[in-house]
């Protein structure tokens, strides 16, 4: 079932009197299915945050529609199903985490006993129990990020929108949030994930949308970039000449130029044969890769290729 749907959405901003309108999002369409993680990636200013703001009803599309479970987002009650973590959440300076979570629970119409219990669970999960009575202005950037996650997840939403959830987190915090997102996925939550850290997106997301200059450049499935699970190894060798290429062709799955060398996809069964052939031809193996093509490669390739949108 499709939970979140952007249907040919466009957004133009007025930047001021007598100034040209800026096209932040143009004819953008994508669908997020129930229980999946959808990653939205793109360079700075690509329109990711504008898209999220439209999803949350903070701004309205100039054209097109945003739908939640088939309904156009206008009812306040629908937001009870959504949890949102903005990039760099600015929380109330003079409140402590307990008070912030109490507000979150009250706003979501939860019973006080329930939100207190859930708040404690989340604080324990994100290692914030010791800081629960400290004013939020004394929190570090990473702690604020984790506090924002508690705020977003308190009412146990079925749809979660994370805008750069790993931003400002140390490696321990990142692991904590990563595990939490995986756990949420296992619970069947639908997650829209927006990040610049492509490694996280690659590992977490079931489907990825690459946005550039407000347009959807390409959508990827896991099969497009994750082949580490298959029974192949990927060898980076010196650049192969034509005769070497012909000699190796029956032994390998596929090959492609990679920088100054050649990347070979080799079946595990044929690895020894390929290795012998490479030795015989005097071709050096420079290294081994875990994937045929990384999300980063795809990202850079498509961004370079994509023509700018007309404003």
């Amino acid at each position: 079932m499709v939970v979140v749907e952007c249907d040919r959405v466009s957004k133009k901003y007025n930047t001021g009197l007598f100034k040209k309108r800026i096209c932040a999002v143009q004819n953008l369409s994508f669908q997020v299915k129930e229980g999946t993680i959808y990653g939205l990636i793109g360079p700075n200013g690509a329109g990711k945050s504008s898209t999220i703001r439209m999803l949350l009803g903070l701004s309205r599309p100039t054209k097109g529609e945003v739908r939640f479970r088939g309904n156009v987002l206008n009812a306040v009650d629908l937001r009870a199903e959504i949890g949102y973590l903005p990039e760099n959440p600015y929380l109330y300076d003079h409140l402590n985490l307990n008070e912030l979570l109490a507000f979150s629970g009250e706003a979501a119409r939860m019973e006080p006993a329930v939100y207190r219990l859930r708040g404690r669970e989340l604080m324990a999960r994100l290692d914030l129990l010791d800081a629960q009575k400290r004013p939020l202005r004394t929190f570090s950037k990473g702690m604020l990020q984790r506090a924002g996650i508690c705020f977003a997840l308190l009412h146990d939403p079925s749809i979660i929108v994370f805008d750069e959830p790993m931003s400002g987190l140390d490696p321990v915090g990142r692991k904590m949030v990563f595990d939490l997102v995986m756990e949420l996925k296992q619970q069947g939550k639908t997650i829209l994930f927006c990040s610049h850290i492509l490694n996280d997106v690659e590992r977490l997301c079931d489907r990825i949308g690459l946005i550039h200059k407000g347009q959807m450049v390409r959508e990827f499935g896991r099969e497009d970039f994750l082949q580490s699970a298959s029974d192949a190894v990927f060898l980076l060798t010196d650049r192969l000449d034509e005769s070497s290429q012909r000699a190796l062709e029956p032994l390998i799955i596929q090959s492609r130029p990679e920088g100054e060398g050649t990347l070979l996809a080799v079946s595990v069964d044929r690895y020894l044969d390929v290795n012998a052939c490479l030795q015989q031809k005097g071709i050096a193996v420079r290294g081994c890769r875990s994937e045929w093509v990384s999300l980063e490669d795809l990202f850079v390739h498509h961004i370079r290729e994509h023509a700018p949108c007309a404003v």
Partner: peptide
Amino acid sequence: TIHLVLSKPI
């Protein structure tokens, strides 16, 4: 901060 507040059913 209003983005966070208005993401709740308010």
